[in-house]
């Protein structure tokens, strides 16, 4: 058991510390080298921990007599624990093909496997931040009766974790592109490809990004921007668009998979009927919090 956990979380720890994404390591190994299978296990486990914390809202609440009983509350706990990893994995599944196609169209050298590794790594960072916020969510879930407050708190937690995960994604991409530019310059110094030319800063010789990467302080974290503007304009645009798409799909996916928290005055159900959307739901919760039901 201990050995299994250690295997699952070894790469998560390397990603968090920034060890797996150090420019010199990426250059030496020719890209991001992580055990994707173990990362996926770890991400699932971390998301389940957060789901457990999120689903704990219904545990200590008074429920109407016709809904009384332990089982619906426990079922909500189980449902939230299962649905949280599903939310992330389904969102990744839905948005990965479009990212790959657009990425290939603009001539990025990231292949499907490399892209998948990178996105799973970003998802793992997202999940570990989310799980670390779990105790705070569990604390508020158990000590408050306000359903709209808990909804908004969870939206805030998902936003914080999502932003950090996506910053990690962009920064790692910067580092990968910087390394790629150096390797491409080494292989064909006379005729750089258009994407490589765009990737290299105009006032630098091809060897400079490598120098700056090597000079980078080895204590830098996973979210640090590498020196220089390494990411090609088109690739940057594609990833930024994808981040917006990922956030929109993720938000709507959470709406489709609801309830995650479970209102104590409603009967337990795995899924609610299809109506409205995530953003209307958040605004409604805000209105209920400020003006009451």
């Amino acid at each position: 058991m201990h050995e299994t956990l250690r295997r699952w979380f070894a790469d998560v720890d390397r990603l968090l510390r920034g060890d797996a994404t150090r420019p010199e390591l990426l250059a030496r190994e020719g890209g991001l080298r992580v055990d994707v299978q173990q990362l996926l296990y770890a991400t699932t486990a971390l998301c389940m921990i957060y789901g457990l914390c999120m689903g704990s809202f219904s545990l200590l609440k008074e429920v109407p007599e016709n809904l009384a009983g332990v089982s619906p509350r426990l079922m909500q706990l189980v449902a939230s624990t299962i649905k949280t990893p599903l939310l992330f994995l389904l969102t990744l599944l839905v948005t990965l093909p479009s990212l790959y196609v657009l990425n290939a169209l603009v001539g990025s050298r990231l292949r499907l496997a490399g892209l998948f590794d990178l996105l799973v790594a970003a998802l793992a960072v997202n999940a570990v931040v989310l799980a670390s916020l779990g105790p705070i969510v569990a604390f508020f879930s158990l000590t408050t009766n306000s359903h709209p407050f808990i909804v908004l708190l969870n939206v805030a937690m998902f936003t914080v974790a999502g932003v950090l995960g996506l910053i990690f994604l962009l920064q790692t991409l910067h580092r990968l592109t910087s390394i790629d530019a150096v390797q491409a310059a080494r292989n064909s110094p006379q005729q750089p490809k258009p994407d490589e030319a765009a990737a290299a800063p105009p006032d630098q010789t091809p060897s400079e990004p490598q120098q700056s990467a090597a000079e980078q302080d080895s204590t830098d974290g996973a979210l640090d921007m590498p020196p220089g503007q390494a990411l090609a304009g088109q690739t940057r645009l594609v990833f930024r668009c994808w981040i917006v798409l990922f956030a929109l799909v993720g938000a709507q996916m959470s709406w489709v998979l609801r309830p995650f928290i479970g209102s104590p005055d409603k009967e337990f159900t795995w899924f609610r009927e299809r109506q409205s959307n995530f953003f209307t739901g958040v605004l409604t919760a805000l209105g209920r919090l400020l003006f009451g039901d």
Partner: peptide, 19 residues
């Protein structure tokens, strides 16, 4: 303190301050 500590640990790590 205890409730906030896990988040602080992860934020420290991600900021490169685990040491």
């Amino acid at each position: 303190f205890v409730v906030g500590l896990p988040s602080f640990f992860v934020l420290s790590s991600i900021a490169g301050l685990r040491r």
